[in-house]
Each structure stands twice: as structure tokens, then as C-alpha cells.
Amino acid sequence: MRTEVTINPTLLTWAITRAGFDMEQFLNNHPIIQKWIEEIKKPTVKQLEDFANKVHIPFGYLFLPEPPKESIPFPFFRTGNINTEKVSLNVFDTIQILQRRQDWITDYLIDNEHKPLAFVGKFDKNANANNVVVNMRNTLGLHPNWACDFATFEDTLNFITHKIEEIGVFINFNGVVENNTHRPISVSECRGFVLVNQYAPFMFINAADAKAAQLFTIIHELAHVWLGESAGFDNQNLLPANDPIEKLCDAIAAEFLVPASSLIDIWKDKPSIDYARRVFKVSPVVIGRRAMDLGLITRGEFFVFYNAYMESYRQKKEKQGSGGDFYATARKRVSVSFASVVNQAVNQNKLLYRDAYKITGLKGDTYQKFVTQHLH
């Protein structure tokens, strides 16, 4: 027997719009839903479940009396004068996924008597950028020109990721919602965001972005941790929003990666972005951005260089195509540090396997293979 249900038609139109579909096109492709909206017919439970999957919405939402008020818990900064609390559904769902992970691991750490991280919120918006940089380097155990020790800027990125996770900050690299390759996260909308709390700060880095830009994003987000402020950002052209904290985080990231005095000295002998990036082992776009900040190149020269570099990256990425090792990707999407704590909780009988699957986005045999073969 078919069980038909009555729901508020407003929830249907809200869900379609929320998912980013064009209303007219969606209803043309699914005429039965038009009949539900007009209340000519009623959907069955199975039909509603299929609809919920199509529009990426929790099934229970469809039985609410009216659409829920959804907002993100921090400002999302756009380069220029704009900040917003409204983001695309893919970004919104990713924020919620990381919030759930953060909530769980925070409770776990507190239950196991971990102390708050001393560096979270150590400075405020009135801090001197250089003082924050010195404290960040000391906490991470780095000397001022630490990046010069590596062969390539990719090595620099891998090293600093490991160092940051060692002090208790979790980093998730992903370019899609969890593992759903049909739900990409646009770099033009979101280069990254950071969820700050005293026990388990979480960073999200858009893995679809060039590694050249990811390095700057990571340190920009780390600065937010030191200032105790959650935020999201697009950082178009690696430039901050017109906001005091964003500008401070930007200045901190720039000095952390490329100390001003060192770059000025090198530039006197050889004014070249390519030469400087080989010395500092950071990406050429970071060198270019720093050179612009210090007046070594003009704003126009930086934009010409930056746009050419990113276009070259896009072309290279198109030639490479997609694919790759699922488990290597999962190590970065989930964070090895986070997955290790989840595995520990499972082994201590403090977390059910089904909950471990849900919180990591890895199911059954995939989860087992990941934790047994790919965590170390």
C-alpha cells in the first residue's frame, strides 16, 4: 500500500532553491514535483526520500512547518568591502561536516582531560603582526627562514601541514563535499575557512586551489587561530577583505612565509620573483604578493604575474585530469591526526563503528582499510 504524506509546498520550493537549481528547469525535469507544489497530488515517503537526496537535504526537514533558518556561525569575507553569512550549499554542508567533527573531538579531548591550547586567541586584533609571527614560529619550533630548508615549495607545504597538526590544529584538504565528486567547492567562492576553539581548531583548505595559494591560505588561517577568530574567505588574487582582522592575518601570513628584511636584501642583488622563490622555497605567487606589499613591484605587475601563473596552473590541471589514489586523497580530506583519534576512540570502545563511519565519511571495509593501512 502506497503511503502518501502531506507537506508544506513552501518547503519544496525552498529546498530546490537552496540546492542552487533553477526552479523552472528543475520542475520541467521533474513534473511530478510541480503537482506536489500545486497540491494536485501528494508524494509517497519513497518519493520524498528520493527528492531529499536530489536536493541534498535532511529528510526530516521536509516535515517541518516552515523552512528552517540556516546561517554559518562566522563571517565569510570576500576580497574588497564585502562579508556575508550566506554561502553556497556545498560550502555550507562542508562547514557543517567539519563542525560535527570538531564538536565530537572537542568533547573527546575534554573527557580525556586534555588542556586547552595555549596559543588559541593568544593575541587580539590590536596585535603587532611581527610579534604574532615570532610567537607562531616559536610554538612551531621554526627559525625565521625555515622554508629555505626544503627543495620545493610543495615540500614546504607538506612540512608546515605536519608541524601545524603536531600542535593540535586539524587540517582538511578537500575540493568537494566529503567524498562526493559531483559536489565541487569553487575556489572563486571559498579558498578556505577556519573553525576556532580552545581544544581543536579546524582548518579547511580548498584542495582544488593551486598548491601555490594553499600555502598562503594555511598560514592566513593559522593567524586566525592565534587571534581566536573563526572566518571564511575567498582571498581573490591572494588579497584580503577590507577588514582589520583580515588585513592583520594577511600581514602575519606574509611575514611568516617571507620575512621582509630577507626579501629586501635578496632583491637588492637580484630583483627576480623566480630567483627569490628558489631561495625561500615558497611559491612564486607568495613571493610576488610579498614583493608587491613591500613596494618592490607595482600592484599592476603583481596582477599580471598572478593571473598568468594561475592560468598556467589551470591549463596544467586540465591536462592532468582527475583520478589519483583514493586513500592518499582520504588522508588529506579527513586529516590523519583526526582519523587517528577516531580510531583510538573506537579501540577504547568510546565510539561505535557506525559513528566512526559517519564522522569520517568512510564506510565499512573502506574505513577498516584506511585505519589499518593508511594512517601511518
Rank of each mutant, 00 (worst) to 15 (best):
T360R: 04
A339I: 13
Q47I: 00
K41Y: 01
Y357R: 05
P244I: 11
L215C: 04
Q25D: 15
K35D: 11
E66H: 02
P68G: 06
A328D: 09
S71D: 10
T94E: 12
E154I: 14
L62F: 02
R333G: 05
E189H: 08
A208Y: 05
E154N: 04
K69Q: 12
I95E: 03
W226T: 00
N138F: 10
K35M: 04
L294N: 05
E246W: 03
L215H: 07
A213L: 13
H374K: 07
H30T: 05
N179L: 11
V225I: 10
V120F: 14
N28C: 09
H224K: 06
T6R: 15
T139N: 05
R78P: 02
L239Y: 06
F59T: 05
R191N: 15
I287A: 03
N130G: 01
N130I: 13
N29C: 13
Y61N: 01
R290A: 12
Y327R: 08
G321T: 04
A339T: 14
K211D: 15
Y309S: 13
A254E: 03
S71N: 04
F150L: 00
Y367H: 08
I359R: 04
E229L: 07
R289F: 02
N158W: 07
F302E: 14
T181C: 02
K363N: 03
Q214W: 14
S262Y: 11
V282H: 02
V258I: 15
W267T: 00
A223C: 12
L89P: 01
